[in-house]
C-alpha cells in the first residue's frame, strides 16, 4: 500500500510541483501569552514557508489539475497553544455550500505517533494522522447562523410545515436524519469552524470524540488568510503531541469550492518537518 502511494506521488510530482517542496521545514516561533490564537497579527515575527501543493491522483476520484498550487505557512506557539497562518490565492471565496457549489476549505495534518511518519496522504492502516480542517461554510454558519434554504435561494418556496417542529423530541428524531444522529456536518449551532479529525488512509476520515481546534479565515477577494489553532497537549484520543521540543511533520490540503473541489478532489502536500520550540 505504502509503496504504491509513494510511486503515485512520484508520478504526480512533475505535474503539480511548480516549486520544490520546502524540505527545510517550517520554522515555528515562540510568542508570549496563552490560549487559542486567532489573530493574524500574532504572526508578525513568524517567517513564511511556501509549500508546493500536488494534485490528488492517488485515489479516485482524482484531481489532476487542482486550482491551488502552493500555500504559504507561518507557525507559532504560546504557552499552551500552537497556531498556523495559512495563505493561498483564491479570488472566488465560497462561503456557503449550495446544491451545486462547495465551500472553500484548508486542512493541516500531523502524524499521531512519534517516529517515522505514516503515508503523507491521510495516513495508512495502522499509521494514524490527525487532521484539522477549516471550512468556510462552517465559519459562515457561526457568523450568520445555520444555513437556510431562504438564504441560499431567496425566491424559493419555503416550506412552513416541518414535522420535527410539531412532534415530541423522540418522534421528531426520525425526521431529522443526520441532525438527530449527531453527524457533525449537520450541527445547527456551531462552536468551531475547524473540524478535528483522525484518519488511517483514504475514506477513513472520522471526527475525533474530542474537538479541540478552532480557526478563523478572511478573504480580501484575492487570497484566503486562515488561522488554525489547537492546544499543544494532545486533547483526547488520536491527537498529535505538540509538546515543546517535539520534532514532527505537518502537511496541508486546499480545496477551492467553486472549482468543484471537495473530498478527494483536492490539492495536497507531502510531509514538511516542523519543530515545536522549547
Amino acid at each position: 500500500m505504502r509503496k504504491t502511494l509513494f510511486a503515485l506521488l512520484l508520478v504526480a510530482l512533475p505535474a503539480g510541483a511548480e516549486e520544490a517542496p520546502a524540505l527545510s521545514g517550517i520554522t515555528m516561533v515562540r510568542v508570549g501569552g496563552a490560549g487559542a490564537v486567532l489573530d493574524v497579527e500574532a504572526f508578525a515575527a513568524a517567517p513564511a514557508s511556501r509549500i508546493a501543493l500536488l494534485p490528488q491522483v492517488a485515489a479516485t476520484p482524482r484531481n489532476p489539475a487542482p486550482a491551488t498550487s502552493a500555500i504559504e505557512v507561518r507557525a507559532l506557539r504560546n504557552d499552551d497553544h500552537a497556531a498556523f497562518l495559512l495563505e493561498w490565492e483564491d479570488d472566488t471565496p465560497d462561503v456557503r455550500a449550495t446544491l451545486d457549489g462547495f465551500g472553500d476549505m484548508v486542512a493541516l495534518q500531523f502524524p499521531v505517533a512519534a517516529g517515522a511518519p505514516p503515508v503523507p496522504f491521510m495516513g495508512n492502516p495502522g499509521g494514524r494522522v490527525q487532521i484539522l480542517q477549516w471550512r468556510a461554510d462552517w465559519q459562515t454558519d457561526m457568523e450568520r447562523g445555520a444555513t437556510t434554504m431562504r438564504e441560499l435561494y431567496p425566491n424559493s418556496y419555503a416550506a412552513d410545515f416541518h414535522h420535527a417542529d410539531h412532534l415530541p423530541a423522540a418522534e421528531a428524531a426520525a425526521y431529522e436524519g443526520a441532525v438527530s444522529l449527531g453527524n457533525p456536518m449537520s450541527v445547527q449551532e456551531r462552536k468551531s469552524a475547524v473540524q478535528d479529525l483522525v484518519a488511517e488512509g483514504f475514506g477513513s476520515l472520522t471526527p475525533r470524540a474530542t474537538q479541540a481546534a478552532s480557526g478563523r479565515g478572511t478573504n480580501d477577494g484575492r487570497r484566503w488568510r486562515v488561522v488554525v489553532t489547537r492546544p499543544l497537549a494532545p486533547a483526547g484520543e488520536s491527537a498529535a503531541d505538540l509538546a515543546p521540543g517535539t520534532s514532527t511533520n505537518v502537511s496541508f490540503a486546499v480545496w477551492n469550492g467553486s472549482k468543484g473541489e471537495v473530498g478527494a478532489r483536492k490539492a495536497w502536500a507531502a510531509w514538511v518537518p516542523i519543530e515545536v520550540p522549547k
Partner: peptide, 24 residues
C-alpha cells in the same frame, strides 16, 4: 456522509439529493 455529492454526480437517475441545511 460528509456531503461530497459524489453520489449526486454518479447516480444517473439523480435520486440522491444534497441537503444544504444538514450538509449531507
Amino acid at each position: 456522509c460528509r456531503g461530497y455529492r459524489e453520489c449526486v454526480k454518479g447516480c444517473p437517475y439523480k435520486k440522491t439529493f444534497y441537503n444544504p441545511v444538514k450538509k449531507v
